[in-house]
Design a protein around this nucleic acid. Structure first.
Length: 931
DNA sequence: GTACTCACG
DNA sequence: GACGTACGTGAGTACG
């Protein structure tokens, strides 16, 4: 009998089920092999519950579970930014997607998906057909995009809230009848799906307009009748965008489907199929429940755990062996690789000749699959290596030829179904990338620790091993020595190398077993998945790209600086009346305070006089010497740290400078740049700024810099909820001038630079956890005056003080603070007594602000590569609130537009800031011009 | 190896 | 009542 009156169709939004299950549940893994199955388990539970709940007279006669397929749909062809700000699917969810299809079929339910269409379109087409045939439909989903289908026998059911949604429910939500929902959505837009809509019009206004004009088409045809001038203009200006939005939200009710409603008739699950699947998944509880429900005996799930015990326990309890496997022949290597494939994960570590990844040569690879069982595959060890006298270029015995081994390892390292577990993965990924191996997918124990333990301790392997495994790894010094006599790893005796290298892989695997379940318990899985791990390949590519630095420019500046220093030194010695080392603060202090008897003379804790810039500036009014010292120091700093040291960092092969970013270096989530540090290139003084002229674009290219304007103050305004500040940012006002005006009762048009400067210092102070002492020192004013400013500021902006108090209280209660994106920064000293207390408090106040800004730019960087993929552009550097790019001449504007859009929308959809993020852009032949 | 100083956001 | 502080980094130099 064909589908019609009296029939009831259930349509389940399967993809939504999966995401809900994934995010609601801990990251369960299959015990026998560690396969992630948490989302599958949640999905199965939801389907089973749905079946159980829908027995009885109103039971569905027909049913289907509908899924999205692929990420590119016909909507992307209409609008390339459709759903563009969706975060990427978490790595451990990806392998579960096919399993949910399998689960659906195991339930004997129709499993529907179609390339190029969203689940919503299939649901729409089927719902419309069922309605036309005179039957009833229940759509099991809470997605508001499906509400346009409600009515005429079609209802929705929100399985989480246990609530049915009928036409009245839709009217409650959208303020219009279901058939007009698309009109409202087209006007209001949707930041989650990146539907543009009309700026400034939300659901409320949209419903008002639609109810007044009838339909969207009528409204757009009669915009001249809209009474509010601003609203009218918005509608006129954005008419095309609104029409596009409507086409984006309008579901396709008329898809070509190669099946009909009758084929969706409900069939009882076949016990063997269903229980077979559930047993395979090792879902003990569900197997029991389903068996009871079906009235059959529950099958036994045999325990097939690798060593018959829990990997978390093994990680800590299995002893570290005295010897590991030295892989000498390809058969042994093949055996290890087969084991890794069978297990689905493997810990990997590489040994190389250098800490600099751009120069490091691969010397060997170690693998580990079970605690205590690891191997080392030596590839580039030299013969007679340790005795310099006999060192030759000949390779040591017992090694597989390099290319042969790499040909075997590459497929494993690139296999999407085998998780590679590394400590500080970026390093190994870069070394291997230079050999043409793109390691993926990757888990990084260092980043797992960082996500959970930032602020508690470092995240290097030695620290983690001692802390969490109670085992001190073999120090690298024992193999390569230290200082002048240090050797490279290729000269290390292979026997010793096996012990050391395999142990590192063993430790990494054990840490992973410990950390993986903890990640979820600490509620930082999302942080790890969205802010830490995806950054590894992004930074690796930026570092390998490097930035071109003009050696001649630096060299010329060095010469000029040397001359200037020599001249200053002569003057300094003359004024001092003595010969001394100008670079020695100790000697300088004695000259200033003992010999010349200048006033002041504070001592450091080691008993030497302080000679910092602030002290010398104060003394400059007393004597000529301090000023000259300051000049000398500035030039000396520029020469030694920049014009000289930077030249040594130019890579001879690429002719460029390749920094290294540490992802887990700064507690707040900021990156840190080392070897060289390219995040502290001078800019504040004119002379220093010229160093940036040495950072150049190659022939035919341009440097483009984009930086967030006032991002930390904006975030503070959002977090603390300060309406005046939020409004000022929305209106594009000068925030420091506004603060000054509010505090000192000076109208904006009478603002002086001096008053504004004070307000600016206060604004920065607020971000740092202001204190009277600190502000006084910064502004060089008496302390009580500074305290007066602060008091007035808090009087004017009471919300800021409330934020500070709440943050400190949160830190005291929980032992950590959080960013808007859930990043956790531990505050172990927050309850300390004594001088440390103030320090910890200020750090706790600052961390959520600095950390949220760091999260925002991380999100932008992760999305940036896709966003500029079609442009001849490369992302090169990050300087906390700035990104530097290189782009072919002629494409500058396209790059700026694309990058700005990513940066300004980087918080979405996870966090909707109540202040706009603004990005300034510049371009030029060198970094000085681009800024 | 530690202390001091100074470059950046 | 005194203490000692702006938040977060990395690197070069002196000095023991």
């Amino acid at each position: 009998m064909s589908f019609g009156k009296g029939h009831h169709l259930h349509l389940v939004d399967g993809s939504a089920f999966i995401f809900r299950a994934y995010h609601a549940l801990p990251p369960l893994t299959r015990k026998s092999d560690g396969l992630p199955v948490g989302a599958v388990s949640g999905f199965v539970n939801m389907i089973w519950k749905m079946i159980e709940d829908n027995k009885g007279p109103d039971a569905p006669t027909h049913a289907a579970v509908v899924f999205d397929k692929g990420s590119h749909t016909f909507r992307n062809d209409m609008y390339d930014k459709y759903k563009a700000n969706r975060d990427e699917m978490p790595e451990d969810l990806r392998p579960q997607i096919p399993l949910t299809r399998e689960a659906t079929r195991a339930f004997n339910l129709a499993c529907l998906e179609q390339e190029g269409f969203e689940a919503d379109d299939i649901i729409a087409t089927l719902a419309c057909r069922a309605r036309e045939a005179g039957g009833r439909v229940t759509i099991i989903s809470s997605d508001k995009d499906l509400m346009q289908l409600v009515g005429g026998g079609v209802e929705m059911y929100d399985a989480m809230k246990n609530a049915r949604i009928d036409a009245d429910g839709v009217r409650d939500k959208f303020g219009v009848d279901p058939e007009r929902v698309v009109d409202v959505q087209a006007l209001a837009g949707d930041s989650v799906d990146n539907i543009p809509g009309a700026p400034g019009i939300g659901i409320k206004t949209a419903a008002l307009l639609i109810n007044e004009f009838g339909t969207l088409e009528d409204l757009l045809a009669r915009t001249d009748e809209v009474p509010q001038p601003k609203r009218r203009q918005t509608l006129i200006d954005n008419a095309d965008q609104i029409r596009l939005s409507k086409r984006l939200v309008q579901l396709d009710c008329d898809m070509d489907l190669d099946y009909d409603l009758d084929s969706l008739e409900v069939k009882e699950p076949i016990a063997d199929d269903l229980l077979g699947f559930l047993t395979d998944m090792e879902f003990r509880t569900i197997v029991k429940r389903v068996s009871d429900g079906l009235g059959v005996d529950a099958p036994v799930i045999t325990d097939t755990t690798p060593q018959g015990s829990d990997p978390v326990d093994d990680a800590k309890q299995v002893a570290f062996p005295d010897a590991y496997d030295w892989v000498k022949v390809t058969d042994t290597l093949k055996d290890w690789i087969a084991r890794a494939h069978a297990r689905g994960y493997v810990a990997v570590d590489t040994e190389t000749t250098s800490l600099n990844e751009m120069q490091a040569l691969l010397v060997g690879v170690s693998l580990c699959i079970d605690p205590g069982e690891a191997c080392y595959i030596p590839l580039g060890h030299k013969e007679n290596a340790e005795a310099d006298l006999f060192a030759t270029d000949a390779l040591a015995e017992g090694q597989i030829p390099f290319d042969e081994a790499m040909a075997l390892l590459k497929p494993l390292l690139e296999d999407p179904s085998v998780m590679k577990i590394l400590q500080n993965a970026k390093y190994d990924c870069k070394v291997l990338a230079r050999l043409g191996v793109q390691v993926a997918p990757v888990d990084d124990t260092m980043l797992m620790s960082y996500a959970m333990n930032a602020g508690l301790h470092g995240h290097g392997m030695d620290t983690l091993s001692e802390r969490y495994l109670g085992h001190a790894p073999i120090p690298i010094k024992e193999l390569i020595g230290s200082g002048k006599s240090q050797i490279t790893f290729d000269k290390v005796n292979v026997e010793k190398a096996v012990k050391y290298a395999a142990e590192d892989a063993d430790i990494t695997l054990r840490l992973w077993h410990l950390f993986k379940p903890q990640l979820h318990r600490s509620k930082v899985t999302t942080v790890y998945e969205t802010l830490e791990r995806p950054l590894i390949p992004v930074l690796a590519r930026m570092e390998m790209a490097g930035v071109q630095v003009d050696r001649d420019v630096l060299s010329r500046m060095s010469g000029a600086f040397a001359q200037k220093m020599a001249g200053l030194e002569d003057e300094i010695r003359e004024l001092a009346g003595a010969d001394f080392k100008v670079s020695s603060p100790k000697q300088l202090g004695e000259i200033l305070f003992d010999k010349l008897g200048l006033p002041g003379g504070k001592k450091t804790k080691t008993g030497a006089y302080q000679t910092g810039a602030d002290i010398l500036e104060d003394l400059a009014t007393e004597h000529e010497l301090p000023g000259l010292i300051l000049d000398w120091r500035q030039v000396s700093k520029l020469k030694s740290t920049y014009t000289d040291a930077l030249q040594d960092h130019i890579d001879l092969e690429t002719g460029r400078v390749h920094t290294s970013y540490s992802i887990a270096g700064a507690n707040t989530g900021r990156l840190a740049s080392t070897d060289p540090n390219l995040q502290n290139i001078p800019i504040r003084t004119e002379e220093g700024r010229r160093i940036r002229e040495a950072f150049v674009a190659p022939q035919g290219r341009t440097l483009v810099a984009l930086d967030y304007s006032q991002i930390e103050l904006r975030i503070l305004a959002h977090i603390a909820g300060i309406d005046e500040l939020k409004q000022a940012f929305k209106d594009g006002q000068d925030i420091h001038a506004l603060t000054a005006s509010e505090m000192f009762d000076v109208p904006l048009d009478e603002m002086t630079p001096e008053i504004r400067r004070k307000a600016k210092a206060i604004n920065f102070g607020v971000i740092y956890g202001i204190s009277g002492f600190g502000l006084a020192r910064n502004l060089r004013i008496p302390r009580d005056e500074a305290q007066g400013f602060i008091d007035r500021y808090f009087e004017r902006f009471p919300g800021i003080r409330a934020y500070m108090d709440e943050t400190v209280k949160f830190a005291k209660d929980h032992g950590f603070v959080q960013t808007l994106f859930g990043r956790r920064i531990n505050t172990p000293d927050i309850n300390a007594k004594g001088p440390g207390a103030g320090f910890a408090k200020r750090a706790a106040i600052n961390a959520p602000i600095q950390g949220t800004a760091a999260d925002v730019i991380r999100r932008a960087m992760i999305r940036m590569e896709d966003a500029i993929a079609d442009l001849p552009a490369t992302m090169l550097l990050q300087v906390h609130d700035e990104l530097l790019f290189e782009v072919d001449e002629g494409s500058e504007d396209a790059l700026i537009a694309a990058a700005r859009e990513v940066m300004e929308g980087a918080s979405l959809p996870a966090v909707h800031l109540s202040v706009p993020l603004e990005v300034d852009a510049g371009q030029g032949a060198n970094w000085a011009q681009a800024h």
